[in-house]
Structure formats: C-alpha cells, structure tokens
Design a binder for these strands. Structure first.
Lengths: 220, 220
DNA sequence: TTATATAATTAGACAAGACTAATTTTATAA
DNA sequence: TTATAAAATTAGTCTTGTCTAATTATATAA
C-alpha cells in the first residue's frame, strides 16, 4: 500500500494524463497539488523508484501499468464515496468533493466493491464523472463542452469539470444540475461569453470559462 | 483539528480512563498503542501543551474537558462506522474494527450526525459498546462479565471487551453473538475455567480470560 | 534498609514530506 | 544568436512522530 501523499500524486498525474496532448511536468503537478516544484521533484524520484511512474525530461511523467492501476482505483473510491455522501447522507453537491478526498484513502481490499454494490453499481458520480469499474474499465466520459457547441444547439448537462465550491454554488444558483437542458443561443465573439437558456427559463449570459467547465450530451 | 496520531492517543487515554481505579501511566499508554514509552512521553508533553490532557507524575494522565470531548467524538465516529460496515456493507463482526479505525479520523462537522441519522440512531455498536450521542452523552455500558456471575445464572451477551480478530472468530465458531443466551453452569476453582451452555446447546468449557471478555445482561 | 527491577525521562538520530534559496537547464523573445 | 524568463534541480532546513541508548527516578523484594 502507498502513503497518502503518494496516492495524491498518483491521482494528480492520472488527472493530468486525461488532458490529452499535455506534457506532464513537475510544474504542472505542483499547480494541481498546490505545492512546491522542489517537493514534486523529490516525489517523482520516489515514485520512479517504486516503478509507479516513468520520468523522462523530454517526454515528462507517465504512469506505469502498476501506477495506472492504482490511480484508477483511487479515483474509483473517490467517486463511489461521492455518490454515497450525496445519495445516502444528503450532502449538497458542493460539499462532497472535500470529504471524498479523505475517504478515498481508506484501505481495505473489499471496501470499494462492497460500497459499489450497496450503491447499486452507479456508472457516474454526482459531477457526471465516470466511476471506474472493479476491473479498471472506465465508462465513457463526456468531452464536448457547452462552449464547443454551435449556436442554437440544445443539450443536456452531462458532467462538470470543476469541483470548486464557488463553481458548484454558482450552478445551484443558476438551477443547473446533471440532466438540465440548456440551449446555446448566442456566442459573443468579443470575449467568448455565451447567451444561454436554462431549462425553460429566460436568457442568461455566462462567461467562456463557465461554458468550458460544463460537459454536455447532445444528439446531433 | 488534531492529527491522526493525537487522536489515537486521546482515544487510548479515554479507553484507559474507562478502567476505573487504574492510574494512566506512559507505560500503560505505550502498551495500548504498541509503541515506545519514549514516544509516549513526547506526545504527553504535546497534548499537555494543547490542553487536551493533564499530567502529574503522581496522579498520571487525565483528559481535560476539551480532551474528553474530543475523545468521545472519536469513539462516536468509530462506533457509528462499525454499524455502517456491518449493517450496510455486510462485513463480518471481526472485520469492522480495523476499517473503523481509519474511518474514525475523517474530518467533517456534520458527517457523524448524518451517518447517525442514516443508521437510525443506533445506541450500541456491533460489539455491544455504547455509541456516544451527538451531545456527548454515552448510553449505559455493561460492566458485569460472564466470569462475574454466580453458578446457575442465565444471561444474555450484551457486549464484548476484546476487538481482536482471533477472539471474534472464536465467538463465531462457538455461535455466540450479541443477544445470545448463555447459562453459567460451573466455575472450576483451579484455573477459573467456566462450564457454560450456549443457547440450547450442550455444555462447553471456556477459559477465565474468555469469560472476562464477555459482558452480560442478567435479570437478577 | 539496601539491592534490584521496572518505569520515566532525556538526548540524539532518523524517515517522510514538505519548505526556501541558490543554481543549472531549457524555452522564448528580441 | 543572444538575452531573458521560466522551469527543473540541488542543497540544506524544518516539523512530525517515531526510534534506540543512556540516565534518572520509583517501586519491590530480600
């Protein structure tokens, strides 16, 4: 088993590896974890030693098979606990991430699988992120953002990319949740702002950044 | 909030404080936690500094009001998680202690209370230990052991004093659980062995140590 | 009461994981 | 191509919580 810190690094590296085409550098990792680049270099050395990652200055950091397997398991635990906290304990959308951040490190061979069964094998967590299966397979995740759509398109909110409390509270205020229908009415060329209609409500304007944080499902 | 280590010390001291009449010494704490007495002395200094305990060489260690409050909360979390693991996730009696040992350290202001509600406010954990209430009140705990009874007494198993896997597996093998009826048939003066009848089964002989690890409820 | 065993304490070391400051590499722009 | 900025790395330090070994204090038994 690995330490809390090692697991957090694996998770951060896994997350960065999902952003295709980006080289995973010490700087990038330090930005995700909010710590010092020097600390990251130390930990990279340690994880290479343990054969959880490879590091090549040119190619950046990559998870080994072993590292990938572990990272996926941590993500699985995190997302299952999020479902539990929201569905069973009645937490709000914006409260669950921080607690799951601790729960994901609880070590027991059968805990994740038992929790999975108890929750009746959910495929997605409350933020719309796919929950890796016990065998490591990850259900399809969404990749089209609201900001990607053509004007006029009607879509369904499938997932959100940001777990910050400020973002999630803003969503609650706008009455947006997983499954909400949104029509993209207009894109303002000047700053990328989006004019949208949420559900059957009136038009609202949101920022480009906001539009890029919402992943959608649309039929055409 | 306190560190994992500080919480484990508080819990150990709380546990020792339940054994009335015993002075809480560094040695006693090191025995409970399985670490070096020198480490205990260091931590005692730290906890005194934080006003969680008092230490007087003559009187030993005592929890302050603040320390008591925290210790009780940790115990509350531990026992609630035990109920969850057994009732909701289907773990065996002997598997839950170790996992609850990790879960009890998850920090969130409302988690214990939400879990308590979700489990419908259980009064006792699966080992028969009382679960402290949100306000710090602790339901009555049992104190009479099987070994304390007079020959002939019929009792009900109310709680067990040992959380070791070997002990709990032995209980499963003997078909003893919380609520099981046991009659104490005979006490062997030589070594304190007990001849008992479990439920409606034949006589069995168990050791004095075993008898002292079972807390019972009896009507006369 | 004195010898001996046990407990408590102190001093010093160590590993993990973080930091700062200084230095070296690499990338970017003039 | 060279100057400059940014990133990576190294060296050294710090904190937490542990340890061992040595010392001092206390309790127990002869």
């Amino acid at each position: 088993m690995y330490t809390l810190s090692e697991e957090n690094y694996l998770k951060a590296i896994y997350r960065l590896s999902q952003e295709k085409g980006q080289k995973i550098t010490p700087k990038a990792i330090s930005d995700v974890l909010g710590n010092n680049p020097a600390s990251v270099v130390d930990m990279i050395r340690k994880l290479v030693e343990k054969e959880l990652i490879d590091y090549d200055k040119k190619k950046g950091v990559h998870l080994t098979t072993q590292g990938q397997k572990n990272a996926v398991l941590i993500v699985r635990r995190h997302r299952l606990w999020e479902v539990f906290l929201l569905e069973k304990l009645g937490y709000q959308w914006d409260e669950i991430h921080a607690i799951a951040e601790e729960l994901e490190h609880i070590k027991d061979d059968t805990l994740a699988d038992r929790l999975d069964k108890f929750l009746e094998f959910p495929e997605y967590d409350p933020h719309g992120d796919p929950i890796p299966k016990a065998n490591g397979k990850v259900p399809k995740s969404y990749s089209v953002t609201l900001a990607n759509l053509k004007e006029g398109t009607i879509c369904r909110v499938a997932a959100v990319r940001d777990t910050s409390s400020t973002f999630l509270q803003y969503l609650l205020k706008l009455d947006i949740g997983i499954g909400t229908t949104i029509q993209l009415i207009e894109k303002i060329p000047f700053d990328g702002s989006l004019v949208i209609s949420i559900g059957s409500n009136d038009k609202t304007t949101v920022s480009q950044k906001f539009g890029e944080s919402i992943l959608v499902d649309h039929s055409n």
